[in-house]
């Protein structure tokens, strides 16, 4: 027992790197997909296309940030797609009545309020978040249809669509916002009390409770964050499209969950990070973009995506087992 004592603290850098890779295998997977598509399509590895991938991925990515927080808590939020649609509809629909920025602000608040509602229901009623947010997914989508009258809402002034047209080289504002938020929340996870609570609650809820952590308040906060981020995504989408469709964001909650799980965040909670989620989001975006460049029919794309998800999870199981022994 005593002879191993000094070894545990300072491992060789090579071992540390290997261990990091085993826990963040998604980056290896991402590198592989990039190599494969670079070889398969001459259009893939162009600055323009890579910029596109980042922008396309950023929408799911912003949803995935909130989902990661909620999933490390051991919960899930299925309502993000519907919340996104509502926020986008409000941000456009209210502009006639109050001007652009108040409408955007109210759109944001709608997301925060719905997240708060989801969180309160989960934390206070003891119902499983899967059921609560499944109800949210259906109910909120219904609300969107009522509000939009089943039509796409058009923005009154098209200068609204120019707001996100800021680029840093090939990188769009949307992508910059995604990376900024991801870094911010990674910092929250690793360096704040709230972040430590998130892991503690998801990992061993009894221990967290015994340690005096207010588990209910904590979960409500994370669901509220998740709802707010969904609204951010909805508003950015409305700026990009200039319209708010009642069907916007449909099944995006599934893509989001796939991206987060692909990254390696554990569905049961207690384990995960936004580094992993960024990896998962980019891998998903590269796959979708690459398959489209190769003119893959839509149904084939779905089949490939499904298989990749299962494959990634199998890989995760194998790698984690190896690490455990």
């Amino acid at each position: 027992m005593s002879h191993t004592s000094t070894v545990t603290t300072d491992r060789s850098p090579a071992l540390a790197a290997l261990s990091w890779l085993l826990r963040n295998h998604i980056w290896v997977f991402l590198a592989l997909t990039i190599i494969v598509f670079s070889l398969a399509s001459p259009y893939f590895l162009t600055l323009n296309n890579l910029g596109n991938i980042l922008t396309q991925g950023a929408f799911i990515g912003i949803l995935a940030i909130g989902m990661t927080m909620v999933m490390i808590d051991g919960e899930i939020d299925l309502s993000v797609g519907a919340v996104l649609a509502l926020a986008s509809a409000l941000a456009i629909g209210l502009q006639d009545h109050m001007g652009v920025w108040p409408a955007v602000f109210l759109g944001l608040m709608s997301g925060a309020a719905l997240g708060f509602l989801n969180g309160s229901l989960v934390a206070l009623s003891g119902m499983h978040s899967f059921i609560v947010t499944l109800g949210g997914l259906i109910g909120i989508r219904g609300l969107v249809f009522v509000y939009t009258g089943e039509n796409a809402l058009m923005v009154p002034d098209f200068s609204y669509t120019e707001i996100p047209e800021i680029y840093l080289g090939p990188v769009s504002l949307t992508a910059i916002i995604f990376f900024g938020l991801a870094l911010l929340f990674q910092w929250v996870l690793s360096s704040t009390r709230h972040g430590r609570e998130t892991y503690a609650v998801g990992d061993n809820i009894e221990a967290a409770h015994d340690a005096g952590i207010n588990v209910k308040r904590h979960k409500i906060i994370n669901f509220t964050l998740c709802g707010t981020l969904a609204a951010v995504c909805g508003i950015l989408l409305s700026m990009r499209l200039g319209t708010a469709e009642p069907n916007a964001g449909r099944i995006w909650e599934l893509w989001t969950i796939i991206a987060v799980v692909l990254g390696g965040t554990r569905l049961q909670g207690g384990f995960g990070s936004l580094w992993m989620t960024i990896g998962g989001v980019l891998t998903l975006a590269v796959l979708r973009n690459g398959l489209r460049l190769l003119n893959t029919p839509n149904y084939v794309e779905l089949m490939v995506m499904g298989s990749v998800l299962i494959l990634a999870l199998v890989l995760d199981k194998i790698l984690n087992r190896r690490e455990a022994t």
């Binding site: 360096s191 704040t192 009390r193 892991y199 009894e206 221990a207 967290a208 340690a211 207690g270």
Partner: peptide, 28 residues
């Protein structure tokens, strides 16, 4: 045991009572 396996030893010793500044940022 009343521990969080994914957190570090230090974080577990002070589980729920981590030293932080006013804004909840950990004093690592």
């Amino acid at each position: 045991l009343s521990l969080s396996p994914e957190l570090s030893v230090a974080e577990n010793i002070y589980l729920g009572a981590w030293p932080t500044n006013r804004f909840g940022v950990l004093k690592k």
